[in-house]
Design a protein around this nucleic acid. Structure first.
Length: 281
DNA sequence: ATTCTCACA
DNA sequence: TGTGAGAA
């Protein structure tokens, strides 16, 4: 016995009523979220149960769930639901970080303008750079940029320079520790993280201002070992590597590059100089 | 006015 | 995660 409200709709009508496209309807069906009835001719028909299901799908979709996640929910697969929710939460938190950073940027920019200060393109670049300071660039990308810079600026000796670097890495002549004490794996060529960590450590120590602390000395030793270990025989090759690498690391136009204060060079040089004078290195 | 598939964002 | 085209 069917209720009198038992109404059936074609794809177009149901789509209109729910503010969907028939295309979307079929995507949901393809993904296993919905199984409309078929007429003998093979045309889809949607009944009350389907409308209800559609409402559920829409709500869940507005919550930001993926179709997969919705499916897991509908099928009551709790284990999958867990991971779905975790993934969704992580995604939302990542979005929030991005937005927070953007807002900070805008607030400081507007403050400057309100104080009658101008805001040049350079200022803006500096702002975004500061906002990105704590972002971790991918060593792989950084390495790719470095190689590109090397080939661009020193096409005739790029291959030789890269061979030197690879050899140094293969020989274990690169620093293999970061300053949180954990091991870094440079065997795959991702030695750039070591430099990033050294730069970061240097900036911390520079702020502390103690050029004779144990931490400063440890850093100086690794910094020194790095330059010695990497140093090719040829001066021109050595200079090419230096120029290309630091140019890459310090390129303000590249959003993925960490920026460091050139003062860091001076600080580390001072530490090394002091250690040499005291015969500690 | 519906079906399906394919390429594309 | 959808969309638009084109054929049936």
């Amino acid at each position: 016995m069917k209720a009198k409200s038992e109404r059936w709709f074609g794809p177009n009508e149901i789509a209109k009523r729910l503010g969907l496209s028939t295309k979307a309807l079929r995507v949901y069906e393809r993904e296993g979220l919905l199984h409309p009835h078929r007429t003998e001719a093979g045309w889809r028909v949607y009944g009350p149960a389907h409308v209800e299901r559609l409402h559920l799908i829409l709500v869940l979709r507005d919550l930001g769930l993926s179709l997969k996640g919705i499916k897991a929910l509908i099928e009551g697969r709790q284990a999958d639901l867990q991971t779905v929710l975790v993934v969704q939460q992580e995604s939302l938190e990542a979005q929030r970080k991005k937005i927070d950073r953007a807002i900070d940027l805008l607030v400081t920019a507007r403050n400057r303008l309100n104080n009658g200060q101008t805001l040049s393109l350079d200022d803006f670049i500096n702002l975004t750079r500061d906002a990105r300071m704590d972002q971790r660039p991918s060593p792989v990308i950084l390495k790719a940029d470095f190689e590109t810079a090397l080939r661009d600026q020193f096409p005739n000796i790029a291959n030789e320079a890269l061979a030197h670097i690879n050899q140094a890495v293969a020989d274990g002549r690169m620093p293999t520790k970061n300053y949180a004490g954990s091991k870094l794996d440079t065997s795959n060529g991702d030695f750039t993280t070591v430099f990033e960590d050294m730069i970061k450590e240097a900036s911390i120590l520079m702020a502390e201002g103690d050029e004779t602390s144990d931490r400063a000395k440890a850093l100086a030793r690794d910094w020194n070992a790095q330059s010695i270990g990497l140093k090719p025989a040829e001066k021109s090759v050595s200079e090419a590597i230096q120029t290309a690498f630091w140019g890459t690391v310090n390129d303000p136009k590249s959003p993925k590059s960490p920026i460091f204060d050139p003062e860091i060079f001076r600080f580390v040089a001072t530490v090394i100089k002091g250690m040499k004078e005291r015969g500690e290195i």
